[in-house]
Amino acid sequence: MVKFLKILPIAIKTGTVTIKYPYQEPLITESFRGAIEIDPNKCVGCGACTRICPPKALTMTIESNTIILKYFVGRCIFCGMCADTCPEKAISITKEFELATGNIFDLYADVEHEVKTCPICGKTFITRKLSDKIISKVPDIPLETMDLCPDCRRKETLKKFIGVPE
């Protein structure tokens, strides 16, 4: 009984420790990582982030004639590896953590990319932005085969060297 009273001077000395959260700013340090944000103007749709993402929160899907880079924040582990690996620095890490919502579809964010279609076989294979980027970066690239998909390009290049089989 008397032992319990020992806590009183400790409590008086410490005072109130409670963080009045909605009214008081939460502790967010410099290194805190929240949800990521994709800049649609910078993103070329190379898919490097989808390959590095450990829980596959970033995925790429082909829908008719668009490639969609889908970000599902509900599966994100906030590791920031996508921001490190992005060659265009299109992904930035924000300090946003108040993401709670009642509707799971609110947790998705999509970036829509225009897609290139092979004129020979009709296969969709790369985003238009990435193709333009490659043409501008690589010197002496054969422009006549750039519109073709990898399979058709191989065939066309071979035809150039050994001629058309009869």
Partner: peptide, 22 residues
Amino acid sequence: IYGAATLLGLQKPKTRYRRFKA
């Protein structure tokens, strides 16, 4: 705490579905 406040209807959720064109 933010999630519990959303459930109780004390505030509206910030997150929205977004779709951008690159």
